[in-house]
Design a protein around this nucleic acid. Structure first.
Lengths: 338, 338
DNA sequence: CTGAAAGCGCTAACAT
DNA sequence: ATGTTAGCGCTTTCAG
């Protein structure tokens, strides 16, 4: 590998002059500078990030902590889409992305150690167990971090607006004439809490009564559980006219159950999903769902982490809420009368 | 940050002794070694990867080149699933994953420069334009690389077995009594070529006639085009009894078109998808599709790249073919007679 | 405008 | 079994 000293030799200048030229410093003559750069290029010079990082303590590398307990991991479209736009935003700002694991890499055991080890300038955290002591250690450390969909007090977070999400769904259903709205929600997380509260609150707002048996616990991305909950709802003496699911994936299991029981979705009973995965527009009946703006979330996460890294003094903790929108499909029937 | 010299001072030994203890060398007494390690831990020592890399020229970091021209990028389930298992395998072997871009990071312009800059021990390449000169430069460089679903002569590649895939699909359809099998294929890539050839060859093998108008070009993950092709196929004087799609996503557009024309999928006409995305089991009718073993592909890619990195002498170029399997759904009708 | 020199934190060959 | 030393490739202060 050709290095700075090789170029210096070839150009008959000192290595510091080469360094300056390569870094676009202005305290040397245009001629020298451009001559050096030309020759460096000609010699096929590629800088060595590790030497640079060692010296400057800046890696231009952003760690990403993406762990999914359910195992679907990156293949969960919501998160892979966030990752994709996060990556694009980071790269556009001159940063690379490295995954942070808690596997043993270089004697490191924890997320924090790992991130430190690699010299990450900052870390974006999503889709993990936010009660994990390792995650807390990382967030409380001196490394700038941003969390997605979870707020650590006093720290910056990007939030998909679940409160607005459930509000908009319920409001829409009310507008469509629904008064018996069931909600199958995911496991108990901060997100689930927000959705539930918003659901109850909005129902109250519109004078919609919510019997206890209309609220069922499922789990995100475990269609079997939502299927089972659907069966239970259908078997009620006074079944709901509409069911809200924890995610689009789960809503498909709901459709299956509903059809199995001889009913037709969008006619005999309505359903609403959550997420807005791409496929939701292509399945029949086309799914009515709340689309989370995952692209915007990832982009904002990238923007904010770069901001925190580059202006540590002036950037303060904040929660950024990213709204989504309701995608009308064919799974919600307009009820003429109650 | 506490460093090796701090530990040395505290332990009253030399830095090299500390280094040896921390790296588990055996040429020092057990006692010294464990004492040093204890104190290092107590002091909260975290090694500095960059210093280590600078010295050893080994980063324990694998670059990943994942670019999708269609823009769906990581959110394409086939690839995000590969990435996920690749990541797991790499981490299990003590390697981290860093994305390689061709954005300007540290004055680097090309994929190769980028990978060199970061000191990647190896690079896994997938889902890119394999004719891109930058990709070729990278593959032909001295960095160990592995490609997924594309073979560069003399280089190692992990291949989803598209030949077997199309063979198995056609064979299955033949067994189910189909003799009029149309194929909507993706844009012209090496994969498409393989699928097409295998399709023609297997049809020939079973004495199935393939009129030119039964073969249509669509594009991977562009449902609109497959929808259009479906319409054209349905409008033929002698329409096919079954249509094979380039991917599951596209097959959904096919279903939509078929139903729009008043036919019923799995009854009036049969269809087969490709990929085996998770959702394929949950849509109705359940999709008959060829499941690519993306998990195995990612895992194998991780295994092989580590092998190449760690045994550069003894590992030779090879193509590893990963078979998938046909997932029977409800979209293919068994035809009693022709 | 250019150069000399120190040093980032670590490893490893070579003493002792 | 332990220590000395050189140096990985780079940036940056400080002198000239």
């Amino acid at each position: 590998m050709v290095k700075i000293s090789d170029i210096a030799k070839r150009c008959n200048v000192s290595i510091s002059t080469v360094s300056k030229a390569l870094n676009g410093r202005t305290d040397l003559s245009r001629q020298t500078s451009s001559r050096i750069r030309e020759i460096a290029h000609e010699m096929g010079y590629i800088p060595n990030a590790n030497a640079r990082i060692l010296k400057t303590n800046r890696s231009y590398n952003i760690g990403v902590l993406f762990v999914d307990k359910t195992g679907s991991g990156l293949s969960h479209e919501y998160f892979s889409s966030i990752l994709d736009s996060l990556k694009n935003e980071a790269e556009a700002n001159g940063y690379d992305i490295t995954f942070i694991s808690n596997q043993v890499v270089g004697n490191c055991q924890t997320y924090y150690e790992h991130a430190k080890y690699r010299g990450c300038d900052g870390v974006v955290i999503a889709s993990v167990d936010f009660h994990d002591p390792q995650v807390i250690e990382l967030v409380e450390s001196n490394i700038p971090t941003i969390t997605i969909d979870y707020v650590f007090d006093g720290h910056t977070a990007i939030m998909s607006d679940n409160i607005v999400g459930l509000h908009d769904i319920v409001e829409y259903l009310h507008r469509m004439g629904h008064r018996k709205i069931a909600f199958i929600h995911g496991e108990n997380t901060a997100i689930t809490q927000k959705r539930l509260t918003s659901y109850y609150k909005t129902c109250e707002e519109y004078g919609i009564d919510v019997p206890d048996e209309y609220v069922k616990e499922g789990r995100y991305h475990v269609p079997q559980l939502s299927g089972k909950a659907t069966r239970e709802l259908l078997a009620l003496d006074n079944p709901p006219t509409c069911i809200i699911y924890p995610d689009d994936y789960s809503s498909l299991a709901g459709i299956t159950e509903i059809e199995r029981s001889g009913l037709t979705v969008g006619k005999d009973i309505s359903i609403v999903g959550y997420d807005g995965i791409k496929i939701s527009r292509f399945i029949r009946p086309e799914l009515t769902t709340y689309v989370q703006d995952s692209e915007q979330i990832g982009k904002m996460a990238g923007k904010k982490i770069v901001e925190m890294i580059e202006n540590p003094k002036t950037s303060f903790a904040q929660q950024v809420s990213i709204k989504g929108h309701l995608q009308e499909g064919k799974t919600v029937k307009a009820l003429i009368s109650e």
